[in-house]
Amino acid sequence: MKKKEEHADGTSNGTNEYVLHLFITGATPNSVRAVANIKQICEDHLKGNYQLEIIDVYQQQALAEKEQLVALPLLIRRQPLPERRLIGDMSDTEKVLKGLGFYLHGR
């Protein structure tokens, strides 16, 4: 469990198929839920096969314009291409998986 988390937070080792960036706003309920949900989903479906970076937009406000942020929390799937964007607290697991293209890849 711990190992995997390290993995998720750690640097890219070149083998991760999924590169995910989650933009949140501090400790708002939505953000907290989103972080918990996405971690759970990743653990359940992408074991060892992902790299998740959590970014607090409050800390890096200039990113908002650069990354075209509007609705938060936002998860961007950087890899594999094409880029996909998911907004919300990631509570709808079905949709998250669909958005990540997981089913497509899984099959």
Partner: peptide, 10 residues
């Protein structure tokens, strides 16, 4: 893709 509650904080 909308996956739940969100806001326009961005």
């Amino acid at each position: 893709e909308e996956t739940g509650e969100y806001d326009l904080d961005g």
